[in-house]
């Protein structure tokens, strides 16, 4: 049984989408990876902000 896939069976709508697996979920709370993403997102947001003014 793959726990992450159980929700596919809960509704027709759910069945037609994509669900994150164990790895994708773990990366969301992996502090080192998220620190890196924090920097990347900040840079991207700052570019969007500077392009908007």
């Amino acid at each position: 049984m793959v726990k992450e896939e159980l929700n596919f069976a809960k509704s027709d709508d759910f069945n037609l989408t994509m669900l994150p697996g164990k790895f994708a979920k773990a990366m969301r709370t992996c502090k080192i990876w998220q620190l890196f993403r924090f920097m990347v997102i900040n840079v991207k947001m700052l570019i969007v902000v500077s392009k908007s003014h």
Binding site: T29, I41, N42, M45, K51
Partner: peptide
């Protein structure tokens, strides 16, 4: 390049 979305702690800190 500048339209993106992602889920994680990083966004939460932001």
């Amino acid at each position: 390049k500048y339209t993106f979305g992602e889920i994680g702690l990083a966004g939460h800190w932001i």
